[in-house]
Structure formats: structure tokens, C-alpha cells
Amino acid sequence: MSVYRPAKSPFWHFDFQIKGYRFSGSTGCESESDARAAEAEEKDRARELVAGWLAARRGPLTLQRACERWWDEHGQNLADLKIKSALDRIVEIIGGKTLLQDIIDDTVANLVAERRKDRRRDRTIVENGRARILYRQITPSTVNRTLDLLRRVMRRAKENWNAILPSEPTWKKHRLKQKKRPVRELLPSEERRLDETEGFDFAELRQFAIITGLRRQNLLLKWPQVNFELGTISVVTKGDEPRIIPLSRESYAILWRRRGHHPEYVFTYKAQRTWKNRTRKGRKLGDLVKGQRYPITATGFASNKKRKWEKAGVTARIHDLRHTTGMRTLRATGNLRIVQELLGHSTIAITSEFYTGATVDDVRAAMERTAEAQQRQRELLEQHQPKRSEKESGN
């Protein structure tokens, strides 16, 4: 029997397969006979859909095929270096041969449960002359990003590839609660320590990041993106949105100084030693020649941060440079709209989520004004209070 009534539902449900495609859901009927008639109509519609797929010579879409196609069409063009490994982990947990149409709420719940068990490398410590790697559990936000990635793959399959997903999961109910982390701003004293520790090239890249508020993937500019005549740079930001960003005097000067260093890339560094046959995880990187300039890569930026920032005693993240831009701009202007425009947020709600209208300095000033008002009130009370006689005062 392909129609059934769940224990806690007043309605009969259907569940059937046609040539490898599974269809299930509620008939909306309270009687079995009406449910069977509704199921027959669902089967007719399903046969038409499956016939269209087969006519187009498309077989049932597996998770492995969907992830590979999403990566080829879209994912590889994104700047997030962790997306590919996250896709591989999704396939590993769910199974590459799982049909996309068979991924339901139970599948997603298991994905979240397994992902929560994963650990990531935290730091390396030295004990008794031996290095030991410490690991920590991944955060709820990382689990949620994995969930969002699977949703993006399935939505693209449904909207761009005409995939049939009759029982798409309810994504919202699987998301974990995230702790809201306070915005971390780089302090002037920390910047001074970094200036003393970092090399000139990486220090200028850091300064440029704080001035412009660009995300890490947009910082590594190429010369065609720079327009000295108009004093602007052009970038494609998160969500594939093109933006034109004006340059301040200081940011303009930083870019102007870098002319002639490299024919293609703006931010480069000078090799401190000759290094032949470089490899990273089995991949050849090419040789380095001492004194010659090479582009700063995302990996190189992160590696410099790990070595130099730790040496300077700065525990901030690279993304905190962007937070520094937002907080300093809000403090200087008091205008949340300007912060939104500078950081390229799509809505003011996103900006206000991180950068509230009241900064620490605003709160401190309000506290001082409150204390001053209280002091004035006490002084007024003392002026209008009748003076006691010496006898009353006990003298």
C-alpha cells in the first residue's frame, strides 16, 4: 500500500517511486479512498516530470555529481579556500551515491550530528622539546556553513538544472544556535607592534585593508582594477556584486608606491632567500629567487599573519581588520549608512547587527554626562537645604 496515515496526522500521505525517482508528501485527504485518488493524480504528474528528465537524457542526480557540477559551474570561482574541503566532507558523511531527491530532513539531521563531532587544528605547542598539535571542536557557525553549502547545491540543482526534489529539507530547523561574538577592533598599540614586526610589504597590505574595509579575497588586487585617474578601485564582492570603491589620500599613496613592482599584481613581497623546488601538500609552487618580487597570495597573507602577528602578541583575525574599519568609521562619523556603504553590506540590518549606533566612546561619554548631571543635582539640593544651627549640629 503506497498511501498511509502517520500516527500524529489526520491526513493520508503518499510515497512511491517512478524509475528511480522518489515522490512523497501529504494528500491533504482524511479518507483513504480520497487519498488514493489524490495519489493517482500525483503519479500522473510525476510520470510527466520523469519523462521530461529521461527525454533530456538526464539520469537521477547523485550528491557526488551535484557537488562536482556545482563546483565546476560556481564554487571554483569563489575566493573561499575552504569550500572544496567542505563539499568533500558533505559527500563523505552523506555518501556520494545518495540521490539528491533522497536527501530529506533525517539526512540533514545526521549531517549536522556528524559534523559537530569534527575537530580542527588549533595550535602547536612545544613540550619537552617536542612539538604537539592541539585540536578543538568546530564551532556551530562552521556547522551552519556546511548546512548552507548543501542547501546551495540543492537549490542550484532545483532552479538551474531542473532537478526534482519532492521532499526538500526544512533547512531552518537544522541550524545550530550561534554565539554572537563581540566585534574585535585592532588597537593603535597593536598596530604599532605590528609595524615593528611585519615587513614593509605586508604592513602596507594591512594598512590598505583597514582603510578600505575590503574582505580578504578582494584585497589582492590586479592593476586593471586600479584607476589612478579617477582615484578608484573596482572589485567583485560577496554575492558577485561589482563595486567601485573610492581611494583616500593614504590608500592612493599606498597603491602609487607599488607601481612597477609587478606587471599584474599590486601587492607583492621581496623574497628574502632563494628557494628551489617549493611544494605545498604535494603541489609544486615554483622557485623563489632572493631579491625578486612575487605576488602576495591568500595563503601567504595567512602565513605571514600567523608568524608575525603571534610574534607581536596580537590575537586578532585578518577579518578583524574589516571590523576595525567599520568601528573607526562609525566612531568618526556616527553614521551607520556610511559604514554600510563602505563595507558593501546589502542591507542596513546586516551593518547594525555588527556595528551598533553606540560605540564604547559614546557609552563612556554618556556615563560622564550622567555623573555630571547627578553632581549638579546634589549641588542644587545642598544650596536650597536650610543650614542647621550649631546646636542642632552638635557643636
Rank of each mutant, 00 (worst) to 15 (best):
G313W: 09
R273Q: 00
W71S: 06
E372Y: 13
L150I: 15
L99V: 15
L205S: 06
M154I: 12
M1A: 12
A271T: 11
T359G: 04
Q17F: 07
E250S: 00
A55M: 09
R243N: 06
G95Y: 07
R22Y: 04
F228C: 00
P10T: 08
T139F: 13
A157E: 02
A66G: 01
Q101I: 15
K172M: 09
R259G: 04
A163Q: 03
C29F: 04
A7Q: 15
F16E: 14
E250C: 01
C29G: 02
T142A: 12
L255V: 01
I338Y: 06
K284F: 05
R136F: 12
R123W: 14
R156M: 05
V226I: 06
N277C: 01
T347F: 10
S352D: 11
I138E: 02
Y265Q: 09
R378V: 09
E392T: 14
R193Q: 10
R119Y: 14
F11K: 02
E68Q: 08
K270N: 12
F208K: 03
F267G: 00
N128A: 13
R151G: 00
L321T: 07
L247T: 02
L343P: 00
P386L: 02
R155E: 06
R328Y: 02
F301T: 05
I164A: 02
E42I: 10
E73V: 12
T274W: 03
D15Y: 02
R257M: 14
E196K: 13
T62Q: 03
T299Q: 13
H13S: 08
I210F: 07
E390S: 14
A302D: 15
P6Y: 09
G344A: 07
A316V: 09
K281E: 07
T359N: 11
L134S: 08
P224G: 11
D80G: 08
A109N: 11
T356E: 12
D44I: 15
D80I: 13
L187I: 13
E73L: 08
K391T: 15
R120M: 13
T315S: 13
H13G: 01
A271R: 03
E229K: 13
R258I: 00
I90P: 02
D361Q: 13
E204M: 05
L78S: 14
Q292E: 10
H174L: 03
K276S: 02
E168C: 10
R331P: 04
G239I: 08
T107C: 11
A253T: 14
L288W: 00
L219E: 05
I348C: 08
D88K: 07
T359C: 09
G282Y: 01
G282H: 00
E68G: 08
L219D: 06
Y265M: 00
D80W: 06
A66P: 00
D106H: 15
L165N: 01
L149S: 02
V226A: 10
G291Y: 00
A40C: 04
D362E: 10
K311V: 01
I133F: 10
L380R: 02
